[in-house]
């Protein structure tokens, strides 16, 4: 065992307790705020504490790294940490995709009265028939749900009203004004550009690295702008909102969480970009950049799923 390769165990640190405090304040503040929207102060305070601590913490990690304290083994710990973190994010999205699947395929046919008894027997179950006949008369299973069961049964008195228009494929004639398609193009391209940047870094081609990383950040920002545009469109012209029944619910929750992750990914890439301008990262020391890139690929894959299941498949 040579001296250098001792695993670096940091001395005592004030960051964890500060971060935990910030996190606790955020949780407490968020709850206070959803109950009483005029009191966002604790939440803001918590977020600030958290942001400051995180910046300092990562700064320390980067400095330690620059000082050569982090040996290959420690870096591998970081890699593992990031990969498993991404895995946990995958599972978070899995919950929402699972919910979408269940609502679309199963619940919809229960409420519509045509849920089959079994795989080989397509007579509807008695419960499904009763659902439709007694509880939600007039509801027809459909996706996107444009008319909610509530509307079908209660007409204008309904609390949950479906959207006027859905985000699905608008037909070949209108294909170019279909924002999600553009978004898909932007995001897929960005996955590609980040890869080119990565290749550049591996080959010690700094210029290629910095340029393509910059392009990726730009594409990320474009995606966010388009997404915002889509939401404005939905709210202002399509009657599609968070509370327009299950379609609005699943649409905004899935795309919204994805958007939040794109934001996070863009910030990570941006940090990597600025660090790259300062000359950080080499072909054998690139964890900070690589983790942002992995994260970006992950966000991209989620989008492909979204595009298929939220926008395309009817």
């Amino acid at each position: 065992m040579s001296e250098e390769s001792t695993y670096y165990v940091p001395e005592q640190s004030k960051y964890p307790i500060a971060a935990a405090t910030g996190f606790g304040l955020m949780a407490y503040g968020a709850a206070t705020w959803v109950i009483d929207s005029s009191n966002p102060y604790i939440l803001i305070l918590g977020t600030l504490v958290m942001a400051v601590v995180m910046c300092m913490w990562w700064n320390t990690v980067i400095t330690e790294n620059m000082q050569g304290l982090a040996n290959a083994q420690l870096k591998h710990s970081y890699v593992l940490g990031m990969l498993w973190f991404i895995f946990s994010e995958v599972m978070f999205f899995a919950a929402f995709f699972g919910a979408l699947f269940y609502l679309r395929v199963i619940v919809n046919s229960w409420l519509g009265g045509d849920a089959a008894i079994g795989i080989f027997d397509d007579t509807p179950t008695d419960a499904a028939v009763a659902n439709n006949a007694i509880l939600w008369p007039g509801y027809e299973a459909q996706w996107p749900v444009m008319e909610t069961p509530d509307q079908a049964a209660n007409g204008d008195a309904a609390i949950f009203k479906g959207p006027d228009q859905a985000m699905s494929f608008p037909g070949w004639a209108n294909i170019f004004s279909w924002l999600p398609l553009w978004n898909t193009a932007v995001l897929l391209t960005s996955s590609f550009t980040v890869h080119i940047a990565h290749t550049g870094l591996k080959n010690n081609n700094r210029k290629q690295f910095v340029t393509w990383l910059g392009i990726t950040v730009a594409l990320g920002l474009i995606f966010l702008v388009l997404q915002a545009e889509e939401y404005i469109e939905a709210y202002q012209h399509m009657g599609l909102t968070l509370d327009s029944g299950i379609y609005g619910t699943t649409f905004f929750m899935l795309t919204g969480f994805h958007g939040a992750h794109v934001t996070l990914g863009t910030i990570m890439l941006m940090v990597a970009f600025f660090r790259s301008l300062k000359g950080h990262f080499t072909h054998d020391d690139q964890f900070g950049f690589e983790s942002a890139a992995w994260y970006w690929h992950f966000v991209d894959v989620v989008w492909v799923g979204l595009f298929l299941f939220v926008y395309v498949l009817d």
Binding site: W110, L111, T125, D126, A127, A128, A130, N131, I134, L135, W136, P149
Partner: peptide
């Protein structure tokens, strides 16, 4: 007894 749905 699930609100909004029947079980039989």
């Amino acid at each position: 007894a699930v609100p909004g749905l029947f079980t039989s």
